[in-house]
Amino acid sequence: MTLINVLIAGLVLGGTYALVAMGLTLQYGIARIMNLAYGETIIAAAFAAYLLQGALGVNPLLGMLLVLPGGFVFGYIVYGLMMRPLVARSQDRGNLEIDSILATFGLLFVIQGVMLVIFGSNYMSYSFLNVPVTILGANVAANRLLAFVLALTIGLTLYLLLTRTRWGTALRAVAVAPQNAPLVGIDVNRTARFAFALGGALAAAGGVVISMYQTFTATSGVVFTMKALIVVIMGGVGNLLGALSAGLILGLVETGVASYIDPGLTLAATYAIFLAILLWRPQGLFGGAGR
């Protein structure tokens, strides 16, 4: 592979990571829920896109119009049923963190189990827009390019919504000081629930995007959660632009390792980055400025 090929493939992968990580950073940064079942939501959305494409012949782009609200509703229900009681019972942030980690760890096995029963443990994929497009002399599959464009569009729209609207300001206020937000008339519970559901919608978007160009199985959610978590920490918790840039960096590094060293070592590369971040800048490359 030439360098330009690696760069483009890395950016495409990184765009997906960024999209997925932005959802997690909303859930953890604003709703304060550490959601270990996040990757399972991604894979469930990927399966939904697969079903829509295979059984009903619905184009994944149109399918997104269905899967995205699905992810939102799922996040909304999970927060209302599982997280709200935990938030109400915890006195401090540490307790909530432990409780949410434990509860979502259980949820991970439930969702994974349901998917294993329905779809089995085989690798799934479908063919969509699998035609080469030439950019700067490098051939890229159109579906990957579309994935990249989608990731950037959704990510930037979200960023603008959060920084330029009144509603986005309320979300950020809850992220910075949940105890003070009610003083200016913000309903913290509703905002947190909304942020969690929005994170679910982003996970669903990520799932559809991933299903366009990658194979996936019912058990691959853990790796996506892991990578999303690392991107979130690398970008600074709650920092959307940080997540975007960190996602792109991770995608580039992984593609670089896969093409120049060995594809079997991509997760090791991810962990090496994580280790470096932990030792050098645990608050994230870009600090917590976006909170």
């Binding site: 550490m34 980690i101 853990v222 959660t225 060995d262 079997g264 997760l267």
Partner: peptide, 25 residues
């Protein structure tokens, strides 16, 4: 504590992939 949880969350998968890589290569 959350950094510890995240690190341990993927650790088994990391070791599994490293062992697989070692055995195959």
């Amino acid at each position: 504590g959350v950094y510890f949880v995240i690190f341990t969350f993927g650790l088994a998968e990391l070791v599994r992939q490293l062992v697989t890589w070692y055995e195959v290569n």
